[in-house]
Simulated scan of single mutants.
Amino acid sequence: MAGSGDLSAITSKTSENVVRKPRGRPAGSKNKPKPPIIITRDSPNTLRAHAMEVSPGCDIGESLATFARRKQQGVWVLSATGFVSNVMLRQPSMSSAGPGSGPVVTLHGRFEILSLVGSVLPPPAPLGVTGLAIYLVGPQGQVMGGAIAGPLMASGPVVIMAATFMNATFDRLPIDKDEAIATAATHDQLHGRAIGVSDIYAPSQNMTTLPPPEIYTWSMARPLSKA
């Protein structure tokens, strides 16, 4: 019986020395990795990279215009590689008539593309915004270039690197002082509440101090027809 009494005393002392579990979350429990955010809808600001191949005998400019019209997206041409033939180039004009009034020169033969830059927009688009410029090297190593003023026929496979976009806004610069003040006020009003894509790309009905902006917005991309 004395042994059982000693066992009870030891058990009571052991229970008193047991450390109680602290309340609240354990340290570091809030640092668990969060699941990634997945965006399921493209933004109108998104630029998509494309590698396009133009078949031999096709007009490169017409092929890009057809692509932009059917996809209802603007095309920003970054570079190109390949060969073209019988190129029509518009030379720079020093007269006061402005750009696009220079003489047109036709280059006969086969030329390698050094650079191809420019933009192609689907209708409607403001005049003077679209256009392509090209630099070529001839068989003797001569380099020439200018704005494309006619058909640009591919004499072999031509690979074009381009980016497509859905929206474009045409701005007239420079902006005068009154317009800048009104734009800043509109900016503050928009950022005083939650704004979305429609707020940025659609003109507000209450903006009476500014002239209506020229905004060119195209519909969502559609797959190209196989025909």
Rank of each mutant, 00 (worst) to 15 (best):
R110S: 12
L132G: 01
V84H: 04
A168S: 00
P103A: 13
Q142P: 02
L116D: 03
N167G: 00
G109V: 12
G141H: 02
G141D: 09
R110P: 00
I160G: 03
V105Y: 11
A168L: 15
A125K: 07
P151A: 12
V159H: 09
V129W: 12
G146C: 07
S119Y: 04
E112H: 08
F165P: 11
T169K: 11
V137Q: 14
A163P: 01
L116Y: 03
A97F: 08
Q142A: 15
H108A: 14
Q142I: 01
P103D: 15
A147L: 05
S85T: 14
P103H: 12
V158M: 10
L136I: 01
A125S: 15
M144S: 12
P99H: 14
G100C: 06
T106D: 11
G156E: 13
V84S: 00
I148S: 03
P157R: 03
L136W: 01
G98F: 09
P123K: 14
S119D: 00
L127K: 14
M161G: 13
V120F: 06
P124R: 09
S93P: 04
V87K: 06
E112W: 10
S93E: 07
G145T: 08
V159Y: 10
V117L: 02
L136M: 07
V143M: 05
G100Y: 08
A133S: 11
M144H: 00
L136Y: 06
S96H: 05
V120P: 05
L89V: 01
V137R: 14
L152R: 04
V105K: 14
Y135Q: 11
M166Y: 02
A133V: 13
L152P: 07
S93H: 03
G138E: 03
A163S: 02
P103Y: 11
A154M: 01
V87G: 08
G128H: 09
T164S: 15
L132Y: 05
